[in-house]
Structures are given as structure tokens and as C-alpha cells.
Amino acid sequence: VSVSDVVLMGRVGRIGLLRRPSRHDRLLAQRALERVGLAAFADRQIGQLSGGQQQRVFLARALAQEARLLLMDEPLVGLDIPSQDEIFRALAALRAEGVTILTALHDLQQAARYFDRVMLLNRRLIACAPAREAFTAANLVATYGGHLHLLSSGDGLLTVADTCCHPNLDGTL
């Protein structure tokens, strides 16, 4: 499957499952690839791309859908820093156009840096606010429970370490 075919799959909801894409659909797919910086890769096989490039193709597919809401689950897992930056640039452009983006992230620094509001969840909603308001010691403890260490710094910010899946200093879990 080529990169352009994957992006055109985003148009299926608009054109129907068994209908051929129109010139307009192909133009939207090409523009979506341009927006994520992958227009030159349109004819390549999706499997030939790096993980970061594939993630940007999937974002282009969402753009081709002309979606007003994007739901993304850990879109940065396994991506290098330049690929993460490309994804965040594309998301920022979408936000500027009024697209709502809900993204599940486990990196609290990225959540605070790139998003207007954060939600903390632990079987229920703990907080939904700008990061400075949501990331209080009480909210973080309620979210992460006993798998959390809070360290105060001179500027009042908190450093968080999740130890649920990492060995203790003595090597035990």
C-alpha cells in the first residue's frame, strides 16, 4: 500500500467504500501530505517509512478526513525527537485552525508544554485544567497513587518519577 493510498483511506467516509476517489479527494490527500512534510513520499510503500514518517502519514490521513476532532493515543511512542517535533508542529497548525485534539500522553512535561489543558484520570476525572492548575501534589498523588515520588524544586515546580515498572535500588520490583 502506498503512502498516498493510506491517506486516501481517510476519504472513504466521504466518498463511500466502493467508490473511486475524485480529483478533489486526491488533491486533499496531496495537500495533507504536504502539511506533514511527506509529499515527496506519496508513491513509496508505507512499510518503507520510519516510525515517525508513518505516524505523520496517519496524521495526514486524519487531515484528509477533514475531521474537526482528533483522538490520538500515545502518538509519539517510539519516535525520535525530530519526528516528535514534526508531529507537534502539525498539531499546532491544526489547533490554530480550530481542530480539537484529545491526546493520551504519559509524558507530563510534553502535555504541559504543548497542550492548553490536561486531564488527569484514574478511574475517574481527577482534574481538567491548564497544567499549572492540574499538576498539584494532591492531584498527582490521586492520579498515580503509590507509584509516585514528588520532589520540590526552587521554582515551585514538581518533578515526578513513576516507579511502578522499574526496579528499586536493591534490584527488586
Rank of each mutant, 00 (worst) to 15 (best):
L63R: 03
R56H: 01
Q65T: 15
Q53L: 01
D43E: 13
I46G: 06
L79H: 02
L91I: 01
L49M: 06
G52C: 09
Q30C: 10
L71F: 11
F58K: 02
P75R: 03
M72P: 11
R61H: 03
E74I: 08
E74V: 07
L28I: 14
L71G: 13
R61W: 03
R89M: 06
A42N: 06
G37D: 04
E74N: 13
A92I: 03
A62C: 08
Q53H: 02
A90V: 08
Q55F: 04
A90Y: 01
A92S: 12
P82K: 12
V77C: 10
Q48F: 09
Q45A: 13
L49P: 04
R56W: 00
R31L: 07
P82R: 13
Q65H: 15
P82M: 07
R61Q: 03
Q53R: 05
L33G: 05
L71C: 12
A60I: 08
R44V: 00
A42C: 08
M72S: 08
L91W: 01
I87L: 09
Q84A: 10
A62L: 11
A32W: 09
D73Q: 12
P82V: 11
R35C: 06
A60C: 07
P75I: 07
G37R: 02
R35H: 12
Q65W: 12
Q54D: 09
